[in-house]
Simulated assay, not measured.
Amino acid sequence: MTKDMPQPLIERLAENAEQVAFGWRREAWQAAMYDDDATLALLDRLGENVDRETTRTVVLEELSAGRVTPAFVAAMIWGHGMTGYGPARVRWVLTGVRGRTSITAPIRSDVLEKLTDGAKVARESGPVEGFRYMNNSGKILHLGGSFFTKWLYFTTAVDGIADPNAAPILDAQVAGWLREHNVESLRIDKTPAYENYLRLLVDWGQRSGRAPAQVEAAIFHLATGR
């Protein structure tokens, strides 16, 4: 059964507007990633503002060079925006340790392997299988669907931010927007829900001449202002 597109989304897609870049807190990220030279080098050369395209480029460059930690951090800088808690939360993910003691805990190699494998699964087998992996056998402590879908998006948007094969982001803001507009109530921690979400984006994309990731980006903007 097809779902009607809410009018604000129709209007946003018709504008074909790109995301506005936003600033980030360089010093806070440097403090959180003090012990990883490759990430510090990336943080030094990142511009004052980030957007989907600049983030996509950096993530793919770092990942292709085998530098998984800076690739992940770049995706999370965009993902957390100006919330303030991003650096600490990302440290929790990379070390598996929650709280202040995470700052002295080492970055775990198994976490980096799971991030690498998640990107590979999503590229080779599609967004749903990438989600399934990262939500089950590849699950990483302190990394839920709201943020691992951001990782999957940037690592699969190989041919641009509107790559038709890119894994769309599904976070609490996107799910909330869909619920508030009486479209669908989605769990962001369930693979079948992500599959339904992707099916919805494909349908709306076909009706509007957009890729699923473009529909997601429009919803994300309407939900967050970014």
Rank of each mutant, 00 (worst) to 15 (best):
L94V: 01
T101M: 14
V174I: 15
T83D: 07
A211F: 09
P87I: 01
L40M: 14
H221V: 09
W151N: 06
V68R: 12
T149I: 06
E129L: 02
A31Q: 12
Q19C: 06
V215Q: 14
T104G: 10
R12Q: 13
V50E: 03
W177Y: 14
S146A: 15
K150P: 04
E11Q: 13
T224W: 14
L94Q: 11
V202T: 14
L40P: 02
L40N: 10
G176I: 12
W177D: 07
G126V: 02
A172N: 15
V68K: 10
H221M: 11
P106E: 14
F131K: 02
R12E: 14
A223S: 13
E11P: 03
T104H: 09
T155V: 13
E184P: 06
I219S: 04
L186N: 08
M33D: 02
F154R: 08
V202Q: 15
P212M: 11
S109A: 14
I161A: 07
I219V: 15
G138C: 06
Q214A: 15
L141C: 09
Q214F: 05
V183A: 12
V73Q: 01
T2C: 05
W24A: 01
N49K: 13
G145P: 04
S146I: 00
R45E: 11
R100M: 05
S146G: 15
R187G: 08
A223L: 10
K3V: 06
A119C: 06
